[in-house]
Design a protein around this nucleic acid. Sequence first.
DNA 1: CGGCGTACG
DNA 2: CGTA
DNA 3: GCCG
Length: 451
Amino acid sequence: MNLIWGSLCQEALSILAENAELNEEDGRGIAFRRAEAVLKALPRAVRKLTELKGLPCLGEHSLRIIKASGKAAEVEATKQSERYKALKLLTGIFGVGAKTADRWITMGIYNLQQLQSSGPTLNQAQQAGLEHYEDLNQPVTRAEADHIGEIVRRVVLCVLPGAQLTLIGGFRRYTSRAALDLINIADHLTAKICTDADGIVDILNRGKPTGHDVDFLITHPEEGREVGLLPKVVSLLKSQGFLLYQKTTKNSYLESEDRPTQPSSNMDRFERCFSIFRLKRNPGTTLVKPDTSPRSSSCTQSQSERHSHQESAEVRGNGSESRPKSWRAVRVDLVVSPISQFAFALLGWTGSKLFERELRRWAGHEKAMSLSSHALYDTKQLPESSFRGGDICSPGPGVHPSIREKRLKRPAERPWDTQLWRVADHLGPAFGSDCRYSLESNRQIHWFVTY
DNA sequence: CGGCGTACG
DNA sequence: CGTA
DNA sequence: GCCG
């Protein structure tokens, strides 16, 4: 099997995985994903099928696909199947998952025209997703990601001076040191699972040139300062015309009015925002420069070009020839994390779904721990007594769990978990300047001391 | 034959 | 239900 | 679909 064959086989397995996922057969889906990842992880081209003997996750079905050099009839049939095509098309709409797509197909909806004419009620996300269908299914370049990052950074710094904005997800390039420590985790994965080429190899060298969205992680070196940040950032971005859609809060305009503000008690706990960003096409010669003067801080600058509503760029009938839009829509995710959870968030937002799942599965099954983008818990320990619901614990040398009590999912019986070791303590230096907390604390690094 | 990640909006 |  |  030469390289060409190899990639053909990977594509074939990917089709089968995707088809399973679209049909809500998640188990089969992940099985095919693992098989695909095993092929991807092979260090060299395979010439004979016997060389695949002994590899994990390659069972009868997957081997059959590989034998056919990825040209198995099943794969071709799947690709041409009307149901597969429709599911892929409809779930390509932001806000539409396999369940909704399946329901629509049952109603006879197989394409966007049918969706628009026979109008089932669309929620706000789906409306926005449909409106920007074309743009959102277009790859995002690294340059576009950086440009968005500069815009977001301005607003974030405006709302909270000293805050840090980090590009995460597939675009992020991990340092070699980060790679080493991640491999410490991944080694166990390779030994035990050996599946996720995407995770074990590519994640560590990710830095992809393109992506389907842009993810940012926001934090502040002083624990707690990040609380309530997200609604303000979103509000400001929106007021400046950068957000075509956002899901964080419907209370959008609390910013400009100086009312006796609600003590930000309730509404500011949001930590994720899924948005659709309005990015001007040719960034122009005026590239964003960090504004050093405190006065005229660029907060007030908005997108120069107001929304000229001659847009409506979706499936328009032909005839109206319009000049190309001066902007495009991009999916942008904003994540806010307290500094004590920063490394968890980095690890949890690598952008590789399979890697995340395998890592967490391994943590649970092999280590009796539970890993999330907030913390790592021992599933056998009782929770710390000092929890207060809704609070975020301060990071102490006593290694307090940085998590809210209400987030603990506790099976009624089994005692469950205080956090043991904060991954931050182990990964911190690996992430270099990204993890100020660990650098400053300068503590001895013990990598999963219980191994 | 059961399990297949774990959260948030 | 959707998102990552 | 593959694994324990």
